Computed example of a mutant assay.
Amino acid sequence: MKPRIFDAHCDTVFELQEQKKELNRNDLHLDLQRMEEYEGYIQVFAAFVDQKSICGTCMNHCIALLERMHREIEKNSKQITLIQTAEDLEEVIEKQKIGAVLSIEGGEALEGNLAALWMYYRLGVRLITLTWNHANEIADGITQSRGGGLTDFGRQAVAAMERMGILIDVSHLSVKGFWDVAEMTQYPFVASHSCVKALCPHPRNLDDDQIDLLISRRGGIGINFFPEFLTQRPDCIIQDILRHMEYILCRGGDETVGLGSDFDGVEALPADMTGVQDMGQVVQAMLDYGFTQNQVKNIRFENFRRIFHETMRRSM
């Protein structure tokens, strides 16, 4: 049996919808058959919303993806459980089952309406990535050249998310937006699928000040497996993932760094990976690299378990 895993981000539900595939078994990066090989697996499934590439409204698109994920969970209820509360989380862990946490990647799904937060909460959403790469009603994304921070609506939305127990995710957010979130929040927040800018100077990666802030706030950083975020070399291997983990650990991030694979949301993986079946290989590589048993346990599971547990305890 492979080790227990908590992965803070994948885009599998989007690909299931687009390619008309099934969660139980498919040829994507992730399916239930391969996840069942682990001693429990908790996956955050993102409903990806990019306003520049979808037909119809952002809200309708998002609801359709969430509805698809609900149908997949119901259809495979013996294998996977929807996690909506801290109690759900602990029960899934105790039973060593697969657990699904629903999230939204792209706050344009709210369409500037705070009431939409209540609706998404009732649909099971427990994390929202405030922006994708572009600007929306909440803030500017990282590719927006003006680099604006949170809007007035964005501040209201972030405050409401903290009250409701919806985890705030700053991956893809502008640098100004990151610091606005840091200034106005009191609870831990996360960068669910981001890497280290000092090791790979991609705009999507976090600088040292951002990393240190997340460490000091006991937030989370899920290391993304996309080669363009990991290295500037033409080749990329699992060891490059470990370099980013090690960098954060060396800054005191034992309780911060975790997994944020971005499965089915990236065009490529490291050369020695093909999907979720290789998560055990990543864990073994951490041990071979010299990480302590406790560090490995935190990275592969405990850090995001703590953050989600604490967030869900604030749920309405």
Rank of each mutant, 00 (worst) to 15 (best):
G107N: 13
V125I: 01
R126G: 04
L110P: 06
A160D: 08
L127Q: 15
I128E: 04
L110K: 06
D140H: 13
A135Q: 02
G106S: 09
R163C: 13
A109E: 13
G124V: 09
I128P: 00
G148D: 02
W118V: 14
V101P: 01
L123M: 13
D152G: 11
V158G: 06
S145Y: 10
E108H: 12
D140F: 05
Q96C: 09
E137L: 05
E137F: 10
N113D: 14
Q156V: 05
G107E: 15
G154D: 06
R163P: 08
G149T: 00
L102P: 06
N136Q: 01
W118S: 15
V125G: 02
N133Y: 02
A116W: 10
G106P: 12
K176A: 15
T143W: 06
G165Y: 09
R163D: 15
E105V: 07
T131R: 00
G154A: 06
I142N: 09
R122D: 15
L110Q: 10
H134A: 11
H134T: 15
T131V: 00
E105Y: 07
F153M: 07
R146D: 15
R122G: 08
G177W: 00
K95L: 10
L114I: 15
G141V: 13
G148P: 01
L167V: 09
Y120T: 01
L173H: 02
G112C: 08
M119V: 15
G112Q: 06
S171W: 13
A139W: 04
A100K: 14
I128F: 00
I128V: 01
Q144E: 15
R122S: 11
N136P: 00
V170R: 00
Q144H: 13
G177D: 07
G148W: 04
N113T: 02
E162I: 09
N113I: 01
G177R: 01
E162L: 10
A109S: 12
W118D: 15
G107M: 12
I138T: 00
N133T: 09
A115W: 14
E94S: 14
E105K: 04
V170I: 14
E162N: 12
A135S: 06
K95M: 05
T129H: 02
Q96N: 13
E108N: 13
G177K: 00
L102N: 04
G149C: 02
A160G: 07
I138S: 01
R122P: 06
T143G: 00
I166C: 11
Q156P: 08
Y121V: 04
R146Y: 12
G124F: 10
I98E: 03
Y121L: 07
V158C: 09
L117T: 04
G149I: 00
I104E: 11
E105G: 06
